[in-house]
Amino acid sequence: MSNIKIPKKLFEKEIGKLNDKMKHKISMFGTPLESIEENEIELEIFPDRPDLLSYQGFKRGFLAFLGKKTGLKQYKINKPEKDYSIKIDSSVKKIWPYAVCAIVKGLKFDDEKIKEVVDIQKN
């Protein structure tokens, strides 16, 4: 079973006030609210929804569920300015048969974001 932790402030700023109605909506989204701490809320993510394993993914899905931001999210994709290559040791092939890469620009990579990326990998 995988759980994710979301900073309470961030949730209230970007999604909405965490009142009883919101708590009910969270569990009806299929992400049971495990606990609410002073600064953090913890949600359980079922294994059929790996896309919810980070706050960004949860926000995208949950805002659509609330009817606030529906439809497929459009990401602007450009061809790389030059040819990049990644080197993967052949010994990895057995346990990690595929690798996909993207270069994300204009993202402020602070502690919170790093934590999110680590969370996805962990789960």
Partner: peptide, 14 residues
Amino acid sequence: FAPAYFPYTEPSVE
């Protein structure tokens, strides 16, 4: 009832 996921069923409910 709340939506859930269980390996034997689809849809699943808690």
